[in-house]
């Protein structure tokens, strides 16, 4: 309890470093969009997801949570994904009216 940085308190340096990483990713995603790269949309989303993960694991401190909370996040994502896939089973194959 009497440690300099108590257990669970992320150091300011780490948080600042994450911010730098996030800002760099933001710059990258804008650059990709501006430079007309192929598959730009996919790359944009890949970058957005990595930004979200940095946020989750460092700012939201998911890396210090118990295994249940880490696992269960997939349940929510799985629910959302299944909704999206099943909706697209209609949207992709709908006959033009």
């Amino acid at each position: 309890m009497k440690l300099e940085v108590p257990e669970g308190a992320t150091g300011y340096g780490i948080l600042f470093f994450i911010w730098i990483a996030l800002a760099a990713l933001l710059a990258a995603t804008i650059a990709i969009a501006l430079m007309n790269v192929r598959m730009a949309v996919a790359l944009n989303f890949l970058i957005a997801t990595s930004m979200a993960l940095l946020n989750l694991f460092y700012f939201m401190d998911l890396r210090h949570e118990d295994r249940f909370l880490k696992t269960i996040i997939f349940l929510a994502l799985f629910a959302l994904t299944s909704i999206i896939i099943l909706t697209y089973s209609d949207v992709f194959y709908r006959m033009a009216g």
Binding site: V5, P6, G8, A9, T10, G11, Y12, L15, F16, I18, W19, L22, A23, L26, I30, M51, N55, Y58, F59, D61
Partner: peptide
């Protein structure tokens, strides 16, 4: 407007960092 959009994203990212630091601070 890509400029305002990008600036706003940066603003929000920064605010996330400051709040995470606020939590760190109170823990110390």
């Amino acid at each position: 407007n890509l400029y305002t959009g990008s600036i706003n994203t940066l603003v929000l990212l920064t605010s996330s960092m400051t709040l995470a630091m606020a939590v760190s601070a109170i823990k110390r």
